[in-house]
Amino acid sequence: MSDHDDNHDHDAVRGRRQFLQCMAWAGAGTLWLMKGGVLQAHALDGLAGGEAADASFSFVQISDSHIGFHKEPNPDVVATLRASLAKINARSSKPDFLLHTGDLTHLSKAEEFDTLSGVMQEAKAPQTFYVPGEHDVIGDNGAEFFRRFGQKQQGGGWYSFDHRGVHFVGLINVLNLKAGGFGSLGADQLAWLKQDLAGLSAETPVVVFAHMPLWTVYPQWGWGTDDSAEAMSYLRRFGSVSVLNGHIHQIQQKVEGKITFYTARSTAYPQPAPGKADAPGPLKDIKPGSLQTYLGVREVRHVRGKQALAVTEEVLA
């Protein structure tokens, strides 16, 4: 266990420090250009020029809408999801589709799924692809989630599709979790993944998305996936692999060879940076009125002719 600090003065200092650290990762939008596995940061304001123009298509990732959550710091998660969709709808270049990387709901309740479905109709995108979070599979191992939002390609719920030369893979890592463990893909899904990727040329850009991080962000809080290393061993031969996850309600990134890992912000509430609080619960210690700087959406653009993807973060505020 982490050492607890019961001194109130220290608590105040720690809270302030925690807030500043969190502000550092909330920040304003940043454009990430990925070229040959190396990330280059650009200010979002500089996006209007050539970098945006050479994109052949784009898609947007949203995550962790937690419909049904109603406590501090966000008693109205429907409103912030709506604001996220409005942000996407207002863009001049429309995304080809949306990805929702899980925790659509807070407690897997039918009325929460109903609300989520209703609000998602407001998105001006032809389609949304979903993977479940652990909050979406409570009590029924995801039966209701898969019935409503599944692609129904494979019995286990995982799927893949090709879009304008990019191969997309949606993985499920929130079922059959074991005591003391992290997220889990399981032998059946890994066998399918190996086969799914086998026929692709190494030049094919690959985007893998799943709810829990497919890399070990912070084991003390269970932020990882037990058997993700096996999945990564199948992906290492590709020239450009982007792994998009949710779950931890903040942006964290890591580059490992040609594989770049990203976690997304939530549209509902932020969680503390790894180890910066006693537990990974909702981050409440935020300045009044600043919630929207912690929430946001992610746009990913395919850069024409470069087999590269550019990732742009956008906050609600």
Partner: peptide, 12 residues
């Protein structure tokens, strides 16, 4: 009897 939280399995 070992038990855990199925949505936060690191909790045992």
């Amino acid at each position: 009897y070992a038990y855990f939280c199925s949505i936060h399995p690191h909790m045992v």
